[in-house]
Write a protein that binds this DNA or RNA. Structure first.
Lengths: 164, 164
DNA sequence: AAAAGATTGTTGTTGACGACAACAATTGTC
DNA sequence: GACAATTGTTGTCGTCAACAACAATCTTTT
């Protein structure tokens, strides 16, 4: 169908200077409810907030967690490799690593193969810290299950598997 | 299971200053692949980029589109009502409306019921423009279908329906 | 081997966005 | 009428993506 069919249908009180106080959820979203992007955005906000709250005591944000996890699973990676794999700008990764290195979780080792690049490694403290982070992240993941349901979460992971 | 079971398993060449150039996608994500948040984040980035590109000619970003859609479907709403409904900070909405009002798509009408608030309306040009935006947004939505599949998209919308 | 081009890490800028805090004008409550 | 709450506004701060520029270092070409 063409879009002319999607008539907007002003609900009520279309007037001009009305603005009677509306009851919050009686507001229609119209075309928005058919858009995956809108639902995904709202969900992502929720999920990130829960992650940040759940990992609040250890002060680790989602992006930091993803960087630590990838380095932990692939020691010796260059910054470029990590950035590409996670879809982060290499400029942004610089600050992330600065922070993680100050906290003694990661160290940059000058590579001898390519003296431009740094080989990234977890420090011993980084390893034990990451283990704790993973425990908390798993707890966060349980919150997701409680929110959307166990089977829905798995369905969602399958649907979006290509994007990881 | 407890998290100690999730042993990280450094893949190969764990040494210290290695950093041999890796082949991009042979990098393991480890724990990340079990996290809904990571997949959702990557998907959201993809979907927003496609939206921005598809609506690039008319220079409309996702948030602007959501604001226009809600106002179009509920003329006369206050800024507070729109902000609450879309989960936007009212402070942020001020700038969004400034921009949309400069482009003559929206107008703020001083409410006579509550002289603190503004009743939001689309201008005539705003109406016709929104119709075009919706057409383009529908095209973007088709891109999503091509990417994840028609039935997967519907499944996803059902799963995340509560967040809209 | 020297010159030209590409890559890596870094620094900086821009703009969208969420979170907060403060404020004037106005409304609601007691 | 005094006092608290709400609405729009302005401002600051920190996160994040997108670029652009740069020095140091490979890689390729000749």
């Amino acid at each position: 169908m063409t879009a002319t069919a999607a008539r907007t249908s002003p609900r009520k009180r279309p007037g001009n200077g009305a603005a009677r106080p509306v009851d919050a959820d009686e507001i229609g979203l119209d075309a928005l409810v058919g858009h995956a992007g809108y639902a995904v955005r709202r969900f992502q906000i929720w999920i990130f907030q829960d992650f940040i709250r759940t990992l609040g005591d250890v002060d680790i944000r989602p992006t930091q967690y993803s960087v630590l996890t990838v380095i932990g699973a692939n020691p010796g990676l260059s910054q470029m490799a990590v950035a590409k794999r996670l879809g982060i700008e290499r400029a942004r990764l610089v600050h992330l690593l600065d922070s993680l290195e100050q906290r003694k979780l990661v160290k940059r080792v000058k590579s001898k193969v390519d003296r431009r690049s740094h080989a990234l490694h977890l420090t011993p403290q980084g390893e034990t810290a990451l283990a704790k982070f993973k425990r908390l992240a798993a707890e966060h993941e349980r919150h997701v299950e409680e929110k959307i349901g166990k089977e829905n979460r798995e369905r969602l992971l399958r649907i979006l598997a290509d994007f990881t």
